[in-house]
Design a protein around this nucleic acid. Structure first.
Lengths: 176, 176
DNA sequence: CTCGTCGGTTCGGTGATTGAACCATGACTC
DNA sequence: GAGTCATGGTTCAATCACCGAACCGACGAG
């Protein structure tokens, strides 16, 4: 989108945030990173985005300091993309979007449920734990499948994400 | 973006939300609606988006039930775009984006401050009132200019938004 | 009757996105 | 060491969205 050019004159933190995460596919890449996806091929399989776009988005997110690209194996050389602290701080944005989609867009069953891993309570509308009355960090959230989820997705990443799992735990589609 | 086509297979509330508000300019239109902007020409002056794009976004938001288009004068016929309940529910999304931009993107002064109108306390990072310890509805938020704001914007809408004002109160650029 | 405003639509040019094909590296197999 | 496969991209033509500028119709004012 080349947002930097067009939103530059906007005197607004929202516009500045959208310059970074407002492009097509970008927030879905970040969402998958929270779900534990780390590798190019897994993002590709789960998102269905064109390869060139995915490569551009990953690079832009690394440049923006949202993702960190790091070598996890030397031979053959393989890199993975991991959320930085700045990327982890995007969780409230994803939560707010998901909560709005669940509450305001009719005609669908719940896709995924999010629980406070420590106590098992399902998170409230603001992403907080109603039992502990405190905000819950992404690392302390357990994701469980809902009734609206396709029980047999075509891609291996989607299948691996059917199991209850904690956010941010690295995904291994082959092991599922 | 024609998101409906491409995100359709995504089993995710976030993706469904982005189908509606994920396009370029869309969330900035909604932001301006919270600031009190209601008329086509005011959106145009404040956003700087191309006229055709703005018309398409307004229509899409009306179709999605986020904005309501209603006649406020018969002669000459004039319509205004007002947030519906579904649109008002988007406030947490805008707040989360703005909070992330303020906290994580370095090198700028605060643009705007948001206070609980009832008690005057500045809102906390989750959009809640630290004094009252409760979430604050958009209608109860007062917006005050920050030091990072351009003190003399070119467009009349930007000038009208320099004064402290409550969210959702209709904007009248000519009266400022 | 002319001018100005408002709320758009239309238009040609430019830039981004898409799907498909291709490629480089390294491991694994025979 | 030749062939094959997996990974992680890049390249390419075609399409689509976006852009700025111009135009248009309804209406009111002078």
């Amino acid at each position: 989108m080349a947002l930097g050019k067009d939103y530059a004159h906007q005197q607004c933190s929202i516009a500045r945030a959208l310059e970074i995460v407002g492009e097509r596919w970008t927030l879905l890449v970040v969402r998958d990173a929270f779900y534990g996806v780390r590798r190019y091929s897994d993002f590709l399989a789960h998102l269905g985005a064109p390869r060139a776009v995915l490569a551009a988005r990953l690079q832009a997110l690394v440049d923006a300091g949202v993702l960190d690209r790091r070598r996890y194996r030397e031979s053959p050389p393989r890199d993975e993309y991991v959320l930085t602290a700045r990327g982890l701080a995007l969780w409230p944005v994803l939560w707010a979007l998901g909560a709005w989609g669940r509450a305001e867009l009719p005609g669908t069953l719940p896709m995924r449920h999010f629980h406070h891993a420590d106590c098992g309570t399902e998170l409230g509308p603001l992403g907080e734990c109603p039992a502990c009355r405190a905000p819950v960090a992404p690392a302390d959230i357990e994701m469980r499948p809902g009734t609206g989820l396709d029980p047999d997705p075509a891609d291996p990443v989607g299948r691996a994400l059917l199991a209850p799992r904690r956010l941010l735990v690295p995904l291994d589609p082959t092991g599922a």
